[in-house]
Simulated scan of single mutants.
Amino acid sequence: MRLDESEAWRRFRAARVARLATTGADGAPHVVPVTFAVSPPAEPAAVVIAVDHKPKTTTNLRRLRNIAATGRASILTDEYDEDWPRLWWVRLDGRARVLTDDAGRAAPITWLVAKYAQYQDNPPQGPVIRIEADTITGWAYAE
């Protein structure tokens, strides 16, 4: 069954990991797992993702290049269970940009630190991706 917007946001906010999908100027898709946080309810609906201290082979990340090229991204959260009535997914599509200045990164880093204990002693130092929601859609199993 299709989820209403408030239920989709509830599930999205509670999720611990998501998949970020971008495309480059050439149209080639790129999907990576990410940690993320959602802006507080009083602010415009946005999702933030930071380049953090987890090991990476390069700092010239394709996801950042793709966002610079297209200004768009999708992010998907989901729950899989062998007990299929527990299945659900939520996808957010929106305008994306990369924030590199301290002022633009400050609030998003605070939201990420509040969500993930792993960031409390070592907050992300890299760029922040901010996705402003155009649409949020979701589905949950229904008998």
Rank of each mutant, 00 (worst) to 15 (best):
L20R: 06
L20Y: 07
T22S: 04
T23S: 13
G24W: 02
G24C: 09
A25V: 10
A25K: 10
A25P: 00
D26V: 06
G27Q: 03
G27S: 05
A28H: 10
A28C: 02
P29M: 08
P29G: 04
H30W: 13
H30N: 14
V31H: 06
V31Q: 10
V32D: 07
P33M: 06
P33D: 04
V34F: 08
V34G: 02
V34C: 07
F36N: 00
A37E: 03
V38G: 05
V38I: 10
P40T: 06
P40S: 07
P41Y: 00
A42F: 05
A42C: 07
A42D: 14
A42R: 12
A42N: 09
E43T: 07
E43V: 03
P44H: 07
A46E: 02
A46T: 04
V47K: 06
V48W: 00
V48Y: 04
V48L: 05
I49S: 01
A50E: 00
V51D: 11
H53E: 14
H53D: 15
H53C: 09
K54Q: 15
P55R: 08
P55N: 10
P55Y: 12
P55C: 09
K56G: 13
K56F: 11
K56N: 10
T57W: 13
T58G: 02
T58K: 07
T58C: 06
T59A: 15
N60C: 11
L61N: 01
L61F: 01
L61Y: 02
R62L: 14
R62Y: 03
R62N: 10
R62M: 11
R62A: 13
R63C: 10
L64R: 01
R65H: 13
R65L: 11
R65S: 12
R65V: 07
R65T: 12
N66W: 00
N66F: 00
I67A: 03
A68Q: 10
A69Y: 05
T70L: 05
T70D: 03
T70I: 02
T70F: 01
G71A: 09
G71H: 10
R72I: 04
R72D: 02
R72V: 00
A73V: 02
A73N: 03
A73M: 05
S74L: 04
S74K: 04
S74H: 05
S74E: 11
L76M: 14
L76T: 14
L76F: 08
T77G: 08
T77R: 07
D78R: 08
D78S: 12
D81Q: 07
E82C: 08
E82P: 14
E82K: 12
D83Y: 15
W84C: 08
P85K: 07
P85D: 09
R86I: 06
L87R: 06
L87M: 11
W88L: 11
W88I: 09
